[in-house]
Design a protein around this nucleic acid. Structure first.
Lengths: 224, 224
DNA sequence: CGACGGATTGAGGTTTATCAACGGGTGTGG
DNA sequence: CCACACCCGTTGATAAACCTCAATCCGTCG
């Protein structure tokens, strides 16, 4: 990353912000004049229907951008919730437009990020639409594994896992009870072990095969 | 749109291209050096698993961009199939990067489009994850209605509808048989009528209510 | 005429959801 | 300190939604 770009991004940054686990960072329909970068912790984008049904759209990990949609539209169409205590880098939304003028290459990177986010949601849609319950869970864990690994957050096939079963079911379009029972079967088969907010993958190969995981598409990532 | 921008986009355009219904415009894994704009006709983005399961990720209508992901990544991670005969405007992918340098406002618009596309997929994910079969079908038709209307393609509550039941099931994560039976019930309830590759919505209010449709978020659209 | 894509239908089975209840841990107020 | 509420996980029973298999029908096209 060129110095000029680093300078620009730094000047762009307004500060940092903390949120506690369980609180909302972005609320659907509430205009927000900031854009965030998830510096530390986990979050998730979700949408809630009036009758209470909830769908988690994607899980956000360190390095991910929060609020791109709100930046482009007048108000966000989904909420973002902190899954753990979280620290964010805050940027001025209004100055976002400058970025395209003054640092076109960064503008390009932002588009790249948007396309990347969409690809993630595409994958989730495939999972929810066409995989069985066991496959969905396997897929979720494997894909998280592969996103966490380059961040150095996987040690010895295991990683922190702040999602409750309630979150898992809402991410995968399953009921809570069925999620629980399916999880249990996977644990009995020794494919995974979950305890204490931590996952250990017992058998990478089998789990990937079960998941029908295709994701070896490593994409070089622009830093912003 | 400023004249300069129009000029730029025009200079950028390489030509037009036709595809016949049923053919693939973009194939997953096959690098493509072009970006397209869907000028006329319908298409869909889809992903196919090795065992034949297919998920349609989104339906593309006139004005939509095709190949943004392939432009950002080295190869596309989904295919695009023409649902009708289709005419495309073709742009040079290599010159795509120029756009950010020379017309930053257009770069911004491209990001906007990417965010918009993602919002569409978000909606589909919610639908597939949390709506019942009947709700999914209702949602699909209502959302298509609202996307077609501003294009002037809705007349008297009815519009062309090139999707087969096979497509519907793959878009909604349902089996073909169940799709058929659910469709029939909706037709018997007079909520919709489908015949001859055309849909007529019999009762907008009831259909929207069934769909739990929330989408009155009209977004002003940049032209590119 | 036969082949094929698309729609349709019935039967039967599997997956997944819903309901209801319980257990363990944690925090909080009395 | 205890009682209570609450969150999270667990479990069994039952019901509903959805899937698969198998067949048929119709229209189009070669």
């Amino acid at each position: 990353m060129a110095d000029k770009e680093v300078d620009f991004v730094s000047g762009f940054k307004v500060g940092e912000k903390l949120y506690r686990a369980g609180t909302d960072i972005v609320e659907e329909g509430l205009a927000d004049h900031h854009i965030y970068t998830l510096y530390k912790g986990w979050a998730c984008r979700y949408h809630m229907m009036e009758d209470g049904r909830r769908q988690i759209l994607s899980v956000l990990l360190p390095g991910d951008l929060i609020g791109l949609q709100s930046a482009m539209f007048t108000e966000p169409e989904h909420s973002v919730s902190a899954l753990t205590n979280v620290t964010l880098c805050v940027f001025e939304r209004n100055r976002f437009f400058e970025l395209y003028e003054k640092q076109p290459s960064l503008g390009f990177d932002v588009t790249w990020i948007a396309a990347h986010e969409e690809a993630l949601v595409d994958d989730n849609l495939l999972t929810v639409g066409r995989r069985s319950a066991a496959e969905r869970i396997a897929y979720l864990l494997v894909s998280l594994h592969d996103r966490l690994e380059p961040l150095g957050l996987v040690v010895d096939d295991s990683f922190d896992f702040p999602l409750t079963q309630y979150h898992i079911s809402d991410a995968l379009g399953l009921s809570l009870v069925h999620t629980n029972k399916t999880l249990k079967k996977l644990m009995q088969r020794q494919l995974i072990a979950i305890s204490d907010r931590r996952v250990r993958i017992g058998d990478q190969l089998q789990l990937r095969e079960l998941a029908k995981y295709e994701g070896n598409k490593r994409r070089p990532r622009p830093l912003i």
